[in-house]
């Protein structure tokens, strides 16, 4: 079997899946119920973590002000799973605000960016300052390259 046949078979499967998804429309309605659920999800990835949670306005993400340091935890929805990441200096490259949305640019090629919507202006300003400070510490070269596979 040539490459062309294999690629054609994959395109066929992709087409069938697209048709099925369009027909069945399995929408992902998951939302975080509250800070406790967000912290619970975060602890599945970082069991010893503790901190104060800020839920995104759309309840599809959360930021965790980690206790004992300036680290920040991030919980976001990806596909139909919750992802969590501990942002250390050096991992957060940049943060910007546009409207209600904070865009976090990460230095991880496999997790390039995430967005967190914060409707409350005070909360947004506070988080923007904290995240910008974290990003600045990374560019100072202060960040340990703390890695988890």
């Amino acid at each position: 079997m040539g490459i062309a046949v294999d690629i054609a078979a994959n395109l066929l499967i992709g087409g069938l899946l697209l048709a099925l998804f369009a027909r069945r429309r399995p929408r992902d309605q998951a939302r975080l119920d509250g800070p406790a659920e967000a912290l619970g999800i975060y602890r599945q990835h970082f069991p010893d973590a503790d901190g104060t949670v800020t839920l995104a306005s759309d309840q599809r993400a959360a930021l965790v002000a980690l206790r004992g340091g300036n680290g920040v935890g991030l919980v976001v929805r990806h596909a139909r799973r919750w992802n969590a990441r501990e942002l250390q200096p050096g991992e957060l490259r940049r943060v910007s605000a546009a409207g209600d949305v904070l865009t976090l640019s990460l230095s991880d090629f496999g997790w390039p960016a995430s967005q967190v919507s914060l409707a409350d202006p005070d909360t947004r300003t506070r988080w923007l300052a904290r995240l910008q400070a974290l990003a600045a510490r990374g560019t100072d070269g202060a960040g340990p390259e703390k890695r988890l596979a």
Partner: peptide, 23 residues
Amino acid sequence: RYGIVKNLATFNPVRIALHEYAA
């Protein structure tokens, strides 16, 4: 819990295929 210890948040095949080399 499926996935890897440090999960990805991208649907870009190039990023998925090469992310660990970049790291």
